[in-house]
Simulated scan of single mutants.
Amino acid sequence: MSITNIIATLEKLEKMHKSLLELAIAKTEHIKQGDMEKFDQMIKNEQAHVAAINTLEQQRQSMVTDYLRAKGIALTDIPTVADVIDAASTTESADATEALIGVRERLMKVLETLKNQNDLNQKMVFNSLQMIHITLDAMRPRQQEQFNYSGADVRGQSDISKKSFTEFKA
C-alpha cells in the first residue's frame, strides 16, 4: 500500500466534508428564513453526503491498516492517520510525509468548522421549536376544572359537603 493512495483518499474526504459544510451553511440560511421545504431537501442531500463519506472512511481505514501491516507495525486499536505519519516519518520521503500531514490538518480544520456549523444549526432548530411551543401554549385555551354531572368538582369538593348538618331543610 502506498502513502499516495492514503493521501488521495484523505483529499477526497476533505472535498466531501467541504461540500457537507456548504450544505450546513445553506441549511443555516433556510432555518433563518423558516423555509422547511428547502431545509428538508438539505437534510436529504446531507444524508447522501454522509453515505459517501462513510464509504470513503472505510476505504481510508482499510488503506491505513494495510499500510501499517506492510510496515510490520502491530495494530492494537483502530489505526489512524497519525499512526501512518509516525510510520512514514522513518520510511517515506519528507515530501510524502509533509503532504500527509498537510491534508490531515486541512481535513481536521474542515471537520472542526463543520462541527461548529452543525452545533449552530442544532441550537437554531431548538430555539425555533421552543418558539413554536410557546406560541402553541399561548393559543391553547386554559384547561378548566373538570366537573361531574351535577356541577360538583370531580374530587368530591361540592357545596353539599361544605354545609353543616343544621343548614339542610327537611
Rank of each mutant, 00 (worst) to 15 (best):
I3F: 00
T4C: 15
I6Y: 03
A8L: 04
E11K: 00
K12H: 01
K12P: 00
K18L: 07
K18H: 14
S19K: 01
L20K: 02
L21T: 10
A24Y: 12
A24F: 15
A24D: 12
I25H: 05
K27W: 13
E29G: 09
I31Y: 01
K32Q: 15
Q33H: 15
E37G: 09
K38N: 13
K38M: 13
F39A: 13
Q41W: 05
Q41S: 10
Q41C: 03
I43E: 02
K44T: 14
V50S: 01
A51F: 00
I53H: 03
N54W: 01
N54K: 06
L56P: 00
E57T: 08
Q58M: 10
R60E: 00
V64D: 00
I73K: 05
A74Q: 13
A74Y: 09
L75A: 08
T76S: 14
I78H: 13
P79R: 10
T80N: 06
V81L: 01
V84H: 00
D86I: 15
A88S: 01
T90M: 14
T90A: 11
S93W: 01
D95M: 01
D95A: 09
D95V: 02
A96M: 14
A99S: 11
G102W: 05
V103E: 01
R104E: 00
R104C: 01
E105V: 11
E105F: 14
R106G: 10
R106H: 09
K109I: 15
K109V: 05
T113N: 03
L114C: 13
K115E: 15
K115H: 15
K115Q: 15
N116A: 09
N116R: 06
N118Q: 03
D119I: 05
K123D: 14
K123Q: 12
M131D: 07
I132Q: 11
L136N: 05
R140G: 09
P141H: 05
Q146K: 09
S150M: 12
S150E: 08
A152Y: 02
A152C: 08
D153T: 13
R155M: 10
R155Y: 12
Q157F: 06
I160L: 15
K163A: 04
F165H: 11
T166F: 09
T166W: 02
E167N: 03
E167G: 02
